[in-house]
Write a protein that binds this DNA or RNA. Structure first.
Lengths: 239, 239
DNA sequence: CAGCACAAAATTGTACACAATCTGACCCGG
DNA sequence: CCGGGTCAGATTGTGTACAATTTTGTGCTG
C-alpha cells in the first residue's frame, strides 16, 4: 500500500534508511575523519540545519551524539565546536589504544573467517588506491576504519565500540599533533598486519599492532599544546 | 533583576546548577543503579516530562544520552526502554571490566594520594553502613561507584569513562542475571582492595581486583536469557 | 584616546504544536 | 470460531516560535 510513499520518503531523505540525525552525525564524523573540519571550528546550528535541509532540532541531537563521543565540544549557550584534545587527552587516547587494540588484533587473527579476510584485503587495497591517487582525506578515513574492521572481527562489540570512539578522537589528535606531513600511516604496517591475520598468526598480529600504534604515537609532537582552549591562539598560530 | 526567578527555577529543578537534561539523565541513571527501574520498563516522554517538570524536549535529550551509554534502548517510533543486555552483552561487559579494571587498580595503588585514600575509606564505610541499614539500592549504587573512584585515582580519564559505562551496564546485568539474592557484592573484597591501595601495593591491588571481578562474573547465571527482546516475556515471567 | 556602560544583534535553550507512526480494538467475512 | 482489515487512540519525530544568554557594536565619560 504505502510502499510507494515509503520509497519516496526514503529518496527525499537522501541517505535513506537511517534516521536523519544519525545520517548527519555520520556525515560530520566522516568530515572530521577526513580532516575537512579542523579542530576548533564552530558548528553553528542554523548553518548545519540549512546545509542538511532539516530543522535545528535534528541538528542538535546529532551534535549531542558527537559531543558524547568527544568529537565535538558543546559549551553551554555558546555552541558546538570540533573538539581540540589536549596533549594529555592525546596521550591517553593512544595509551588506551595500545591497551585494547593489540589484544583485539590477536583475537581477530584467531577468529577471522575467509569472508573477513576478504574484506580486510579489499579494504587495504582501497586504502592504497586512495593514497596513491592523492585523496588524503579518504586515505585517512580508511586508515582508521581498518582498525575498526579488525576490532569487529574480534567479535567483542563492547570493546569495538570503545575503539571506534578512540579512532575518531585519534583523527583529531593527528590533526593537531602530527609531526611529519608525508607518510600518513604506514601502509606497510597495515599490509603486514592484515597478512598476519590472514595467516592466522595471533602472536604476530598482536606484536605488529602494538608496534604500529607505538610508531604512530611516537610520530606525535605533544610538547606544543596547539589546543589551548580559546579560539584566539588558533588564529594567531595560523592553524 | 531576574535573580529571584532564577532561584525559583533552580529550586524547582531540584538538583540545581547543572543543565536540566544532565540532572535528569543522572537521576535516571542513579535510579537504574539502585534497581528502582528494572530492565525493560518503558520510559514514556510525557510521563518523565511531568515528573521532572520540564518539556519533552529536555527529556528527549536526557534519554538520548542514556541510550548512548546503553542504559536505555530507543526503538524508533516506539519509545525508550531500560535496556536489557543479552547474555552475550553481559559476558562482554565483564570481560571488558576484567581487562581494564585490574590495570586501573594497580595504577591507583601506585598513585593514590592521602586525600584519595581518605575518600576511598570514607566510601567503603558509607557503603558498609548502607548495607547494614538494609538500603539495598544505595548499597548497590555505592558498590559500583567505588570502582569508578578507583579508576579516577588512576588518572586516565578516557579509560575511566569507559569503566563508568561498563559499571552502569553491570547494574543492568546484575538485575537480570544475578544468581543469589544475598551477598550483594563482597564487602570484604572491597575492603581488602582499598587496603591494598592504601598500602601502595600495586601487584596485590591488581590481583584483588581481578579476583573480585571473576567472582562477580561467576555469580551470574547467563544460561537463561531472561532478556528476550519484547515486552511479552517480561509480563509473562512476572518480573 | 582609553575605559566603561548600555543596547542591539545573533545564537543557543526550551516549550509548544503539528505530522508521522505504531498499538490495540473492533468489525466483518470466511 | 478464527483471521484479516480498518479505524481510533496514544506516542514519538520534527518543525517552529519564543525566552534566555552571550556577543558585538556604539556612545558616553573621564
Amino acid at each position: 500500500m504505502s510502499d510507494a510513499d515509503f520509497e519516496a520518503v526514503r529518496k527525499s531523505t537522501g541517505t535513506a534508511l537511517l534516521p536523519p540525525d544519525q545520517a548527519i552525525s555520520h556525515s560530520l564524523s566522516r568530515a572530521i575523519h577526513e580532516h575537512k573540519l579542523s579542530p576548533g571550528i564552530k558548528l553553528g546550528e542554523d548553518e548545519l540545519a540549512e546545509v542538511y535541509g532539516v530543522s535545528r532540532t535534528v541538528v542538535r541531537t546529532a551534535l549531542r551524539t558527537l559531543a558524547h563521543d568527544r568529537l565535538v565540544e558543546i559549551k553551554r549557550n555558546r555552541g558546538a565546536f570540533v573538539a581540540q584534545p589536549s596533549p594529555r587527552d592525546a596521550q591517553e587516547v593512544f595509551e588506551a589504544r595500545e591497551l585494547l587494540e593489540p589484544r583485539t588484533a590477536r583475537e581477530a587473527a584467531r577468529r577471522a573467517s575467509s569472508a573477513d579476510i576478504e574484506k580486510l584485503l579489499h579494504h587495504v587495497a582501497h586504502e592504497h588506491e586512495a593514497s596513491t591517487e592523492g585523496d588524503r582525506g579518504l586515505a585517512l578515513y580508511l586508515s582508521g576504519q581498518l582498525h575498526v574492521e579488525i576490532a569487529k572481527i574480534a567479535g567483542q562489540q563492547t570493546i569495538t565500540g570503545f575503539i571506534e570512539t578512540l579512532i575518531a578522537r585519534s583523527s583529531l589528535v593527528v590533526a593537531l599533533y602530527w609531526r611529519r606531513e608525508s607518510a600518513i600511516c604506514g601502509h606497510h604496517d597495515h599490509e603486514s598486519l592484515v597478512r598476519a591475520i590472514e595467516g592466522h598468526r595471533p602472536e604476530e598480529a598482536e606484536a605488529l599492532m602494538k608496534s604500529h600504534l607505538v610508531d604512530l604515537h611516537s610520530a606525535l609532537d605533544l610538547s606544543r599544546p596547539r589546543a589551548g582552549s580559546g579560539t584566539l591562539k588558533d588564529l594567531l598560530t595560523g592553524v
